[in-house]
């Protein structure tokens, strides 16, 4: 299973470091932080859907499923903008080109590295689930003590 970016919404402090880091790296931020009810901040970015509507709509093969990731090849892109219409999360933007998270190519994405609160992690789903469960169990044990 490939590692993706996961969010722990309980940790996000809404500082927008991820936006600034992404903008520095890619010239345009592909992650955007918004605040719900003026309380909880949530960064939003491409989920690398397993069954991706953007891939289904892309007629040039510019967006394609690669394992459980979505890959993008800008050479094939016609800038038609239909993937923006298809994406359920609003995670694709169009300026002079398609702006969408590519996990910074290889290694750890800058948003994950920069997040002061460790709200963003690069993990595979099993590890995330395991560590979330482990943390919840540990917390419960600590509270019971």
């Amino acid at each position: 299973m490939m590692a993706k970016i996961y969010l722990d919404p309980e940790r996000c402090i809404g500082c927008r470091a991820c936006e600034l880091a992404c903008e520095r790296e890619h010239g345009h931020p592909r992650i955007s932080v918004g605040t719900v009810s003026d309380l909880a901040a949530v960064p939003l970015y491409c989920h690398q859907c397993d069954v991706a509507p953007c891939v289904a709509i892309c007629y040039t093969g510019s967006l394609r499923q690669d394992g459980d990731m979505v890959k993008f090849d800008s050479d094939l892109c016609t800038l038609c903008g239909l993937c923006l219409v298809a994406c359920p999360f609003g995670a694709i933007e169009l300026d002079s080109k398609i702006q969408r998270c590519d996990l910074c190519g290889s290694g750890t994405p800058v948003c994950v590295m920069t997040c002061p609160a460790e709200a963003l992690v690069l993990e595979d789903l099993d590890t995330v689930t395991r560590s979330t469960r482990g943390r919840a169990a540990g917390l419960l044990a600590a509270r019971l003590r």
């Binding site: 719900v36 009810s37 309380l39 909880a40 949530v42 939003l44 994406c87 359920p88 609003g90 995670a91």
Partner: peptide, 15 residues
């Protein structure tokens, strides 16, 4: 509004 909805789905349980 899609982004907003997605954010809500994360935030509302937290709130």
């Amino acid at each position: 509004c899609r982004r907003d909805g997605q954010r809500r789905s994360h935030a509302v349980p937290c709130i």
